[in-house]
Amino acid sequence: MRQEEDFEANLAGEEGKSEETRSSWFKRIKKGILTSTADKKETPEGLWSKCPECGYICTVTELRENLFVCPKCNYHHRIGSAEYFEIIFDDNQYDVMFENIRSRDFLQFTDLKSYGKRLEETWAKTDITDSIRIAAGKVDGEGLVTGCMDFEFIGGSLGSVMGERISRAVDFCLERKMPLLIICKSGGARMMESAFSLMQLAKVSGKLSLLTDAKIPYISLLTDPSFGGISASFGMLGDLNIAEPGALIGFAGPRVIRETIKKDLPEGFQRSEFLLEHGFLDFIVHRRELKEKLAQVLRLFRN
């Protein structure tokens, strides 16, 4: 198993990376994930992390060196936009856009807490301004606009801000003739925005059709988890729909399905591999190979 992976890493041929990737379990990669950690306050050095899948224990530093993939079982830990941008963009250089668009409690929605308060609290504990960040940069020299969801911001939920930021990202892509990647990681719609959140499915899908007319590629990368309104709109509308291994992806959540059919769900149900088998994914990509694979398909689209 391990050998196979080394082989694949070698084949990928990312500049200067093959050598290091081969032994990357224990060594630092010079460029890439270790640059500027200023923003990552959640994982101080010296902490230990336990893999939720296999129980393997390693230091957070080691985990980070391995792009937050369990060195033992390949479980892909949930990471945020900062980590993904660092993984895919050359020299960790990118422009973040549309951060000035912020959520508002327009409906004065109150469940156990008011939406306004929920937003204030979330902003207070994180630097992230909403559930998606848009950035433009280069992936092995190929220009790419990327929208990446942050699960820690109200479960990566799809609300007006996500819709508007993606919408503007599409306009930016049209203007610059740059391809679009959306990295999905979301539980679904932001219920506190009620019908407005539902209409974001329509809004984004409509905007994506403009990319189709302009023949600009759009890639959807589904990561763990990608549910509800995400899969019922742009998550499944990529020219390429790709996913990380083992990610839970679906329309209805497993709990709802279990309660509906009153039976246990089969092993592997709604995992990436299941979706691939049923014909809904173009391919599954390991986080380590994400950048090369993206660059490869972007080049194929372009040439």
Partner: peptide
């Protein structure tokens, strides 16, 4: 939309999208 096992197998999300 129906939240069933086969609905997921046949791509409920994709169909709606």
């Amino acid at each position: 939309a129906y939240p069933g096992l086969e609905a997921e197998e046949r791509g409920q999300g994709e169909a709606i999208a």
